[in-house]
Design a protein around this nucleic acid. Structure first.
Length: 445
RNA sequence: GCGACCGUAGCUCAGCUGGUUAGAGCGCCGGUUUGUGGUACCGGAGGUCGGGGGUUCGAACCCCCUCGGUCGCCCCA
């Protein structure tokens, strides 16, 4: 406890940033670890990307006039006067690298990454200014099988995270460029005819982004969205065939999906497949994983036309769904001694069992050698550790290590693992006294 | 950018219609007690009541501004 009264003001954290700790941090780590494992199964190559780029990387790919560019990016000038932007997404930076680093030679290229992203938005449940995503992209593959590959991987990821229940895959196609333009024109005609009866927001959307009227939350719009023109009536034969191959592939892989004809993307470069894995357990932010095919993006960055498809998912949202259902991070053994003169022996024992023999069988151990020696047993018990290894004195030898149950919930076998680890450092004698396994630490090796 | 609610010890909160030195539980530190045992008792550290201004004899409590939090709208790459 600090008894000082500092005169300086502690700076506050930046709005919309989070200090993730405790169960939230464990769930977060579980999401990342599971993603890493699954992406390797699907042979996606890991990439590490810069956290900031020239502003043009994002403004060109997203479209100069969109809200997201004009008011939702963290942009600043560096000392040379160049406009830079903290990445608001992974896709544009990866697309830039594909063009500037010669990654075309690896096409079709499957890549995966994760890390922090930044968007200047008002924080709310599941939305932060610095947040984190996992991301997977397939670049240079025009075939619908790439979409399938990505979706099957996403489906497996959600299942392995144990959060697939209550999450549904909503799938749609936006068709090719011609299909999409025809549909868009039809939607504008349809909604313009009833413009006066739409919500103010949707009247505005009619000019800016008519597709978005379809997923309006305003009840005044619902009567009209139900009967709005459907993309299916405007799909070219090629677009229909593409979508059929995507759905056929999902069925073959056993991935459940729901057709969502109103599911659209906010940006113009999307083509064909659009999808979201959605839950109703996260308030207003129901999308846990979303993506689609963005065949128009590379050209927006000055590259050759290159088909690509990808998805991203918010780690915080996935972690919220995981809740406390992550693998145990409990302390298996807490090492302590109530005798100050044996503290170094306790340090030695703790390091031995943490190193393990072999190392895969190392023990998850905490070490308690601070504070009042007499209260260490109480603290050990209160720590929630399953078992304790108490270091006690005995004449003529270094001391003894006694294994005792504290809060045993699991039959996790630690005794043999501890014994093997101790034998790497000590000459020991094993005894058994009053339900407690006890090793006499005779001498150091 | 807009709206609603909220802001008292490290944490969870109490504090009556504004009224003397702002409280509890938990946690933390120390002591005594106990000595197969997370006990019991005693003591201690820790609060500019988010910040600023105003009304009042008097403000944690009323008013204004501001900062922050939560949730929603817009937007959603």
């Amino acid at each position: 406890m600090s008894t000082q009264t500092p005169s300086i003001q502690t700076p506050q954290a930046i709005r919309g940033t989070q200090d993730i700790f405790g169960p939230d941090a464990e769930a977060f780590a579980f999401v990342v670890e599971t993603f890493e494992r699954v992406r390797k199964l699907y042979r996606f190559r890991r990439v590490e990307m810069p956290v900031f780029e020239k502003t043009a990387v994002f403004s060109r790919s997203l479209g100069e006039t969109t809200d997201v560019v004009s008011k939702e990016m963290y942009s600043f000038e560096d000392r040379g006067g160049e406009s830079l932007t903290l990445r608001p997404e992974f896709t544009a930076g990866i697309a830039r690298a594909y063009l500037t680093d010669g990654w075309q030679q690896y096409a079709p290229l499957k890549v995966a990454t994760h890390g922090p992203l930044f968007r200047y938005e008002r924080p709310q449940k599941g939305r932060y200014r610095q947040f984190h995503q996992i991301d997977a992209e397939v670049i240079g593959a025009a075939e619908p099988q790439a979409d399938v590959e990505l979706l099957v991987m996403a489906d497996q990821l959600l299942k392995e995270l144990g959060i697939a229940d209550g999450v549904t895959l909503q799938l749609n196609t936006l068709g090719d460029g011609a299909s999409r333009d025809a549909w868009r024109a039809a939607l504008i005609d349809y909604f313009r005819a009833v413009k006066g009866e739409l919500s103010e927001d949707s009247q505005d959307r009619l000019e800016r982004n008519p597709l978005r009227i379809l997923d309006s939350k305003d009840p005044r719009d619902k009567p009209f969205t139900a009967d709005a023109p459907k993309i299916d009536d405007f799909l070219s034969a090629e677009a229909q065939d593409f979508f059929a191959k995507v759905t056929g592939g999902l069925d073959a892989a056993g991935v459940e999906w729901t057709r969502a004809p109103a599911l659209v993307r906010g940006l113009d470069y999307y083509r064909h497949t659009a999808f979201e894995f959605v839950t109703d357990r996260l308030g207003a932010q129901g999308t846990v994983l979303g993506g689609g095919r963005y065949d128009g993006l590379m050209e927006a960055l000055g590259g050759a036309a290159t088909p690509a498809v990808g998805w991203a998912a918010g780690i915080e949202r996935l972690a919220m769904l995981v809740g406390d259902q992550y693998p145990s991070t409990d302390t298996e053994v807490v090492v302590f001694t109530e005798l100050t003169e044996l503290e170094n022996l306790a340090i030695s024992v703790a390091s031995a069992i943490r190193a393990g023999s072999p190392s895969e069988l190392a023990v998850h151990a905490d070490l308690l050698i601070s504070g009042s020696p007499k209260k260490r047993y109480q603290k050990a018990k209160a720590s929630g550790a399953w078992r304790a290894l108490s270091i006690e004195g005995l004449g003529g030898v270094l001391g003894i290590a006694r294994l005792r149950d504290l809060n045993v919930e699991s039959a996790s076998p630690v005794r043999s693992r501890i014994k093997a680890a101790l034998e790497t450092r000590f000459n020991i004698q094993e005894t058994e006294v009053a339900n407690a396994h006890t090793w006499v630490l005779v001498s150091k090796k």
